[in-house]
Amino acid sequence: MLVLVGLLGAVPLKETLEITADKFLANEKKRTTIIEGHVFIKKGQDTLTADKVVIYTNQKRKPIKYEAIGSVKFHIVTQDGRHVEGHSDRLIYDAIKREYRLLQNAVVNEVGKINSIKGEEIILNNVSGYADVVGGKDKPAKFIFDMEDIQKANEQEKAKKAKQKAQHSKESHAPH
C-alpha cells in the first residue's frame, strides 16, 4: 500500500526545511501562516509545489494542519525507500492524525511501478497504513497494483510472523 511520510511533519535536526514563495503572511491571532505564489517546499528528497499553502498552529505554535491549494504536486521518498508522487487540486495534512486528504482530481503513483490510486478524494493515514478512495459522479475510484509486489509483501509478512512464533516457542521452552 502506498504510505506517505509527513512531508511537512517533524523535521530531523540535521535535515533542513526549505520554503520559497512570492509571499509569506503570518497571523498570530488566527494562528495561521499563509504562503502564496509559486510555493515550493523541500525537505530532504521530498518536495511539494502549490499555488498556496496554509499552516495552522496550536497555542504553542506547533503545526496541527497544513493545507495546499491549487496545482498541488508532490514527490516523497517513503521510509522503506520507495518514491511516491502525485497531484490534486487540494491537499490537507492533519499532523495530529498523520493523515493526508487529497481532494479533486487526486492521483498517487509509485515511481517506477504501475501502482496507482486515482479518485476525487484519497485519504492516506501514516499510522494505520490505510487508504480510502472515493470516486466522483463521472469519475470512479481506481486502484492499479502490481500483484507480484503484493504477493512478495504477504510472503515477507508470513515469514516474519513464523520467525516471531519460533522465537516465542524457543523462549517458552528454555530452561529457567
Rank of each mutant, 00 (worst) to 15 (best):
K158D: 12
G135F: 01
N125D: 14
G112N: 15
K160C: 01
I76C: 10
G112L: 14
I150E: 06
H83L: 11
S128Q: 07
P175V: 05
E171H: 08
H87L: 08
Q164K: 12
I150C: 03
G119D: 05
V53P: 04
Q45H: 08
G112S: 14
V127D: 15
N115W: 02
G129R: 05
D94L: 12
F74S: 08
A162W: 03
A174H: 13
F143P: 09
R101N: 13
I76M: 13
H168C: 03
T49C: 08
G136K: 07
K62P: 06
K118Q: 15
A95L: 11
N109L: 09
K170C: 01
S169D: 15
I69N: 05
P140F: 06
E121K: 08
M147C: 04
K142G: 05
Q104K: 09
V107A: 03
N125M: 09
N58P: 14
A159Q: 11
I122F: 00
T49V: 10
R90S: 02
I122G: 01
Q59L: 15
H87Q: 10
D149T: 04
E85Q: 10
Q156P: 00
S116N: 14
D80T: 15
V53S: 00
N126R: 11
F74P: 03
G86S: 07
K113G: 09
K43I: 03
D89M: 09
I69T: 10
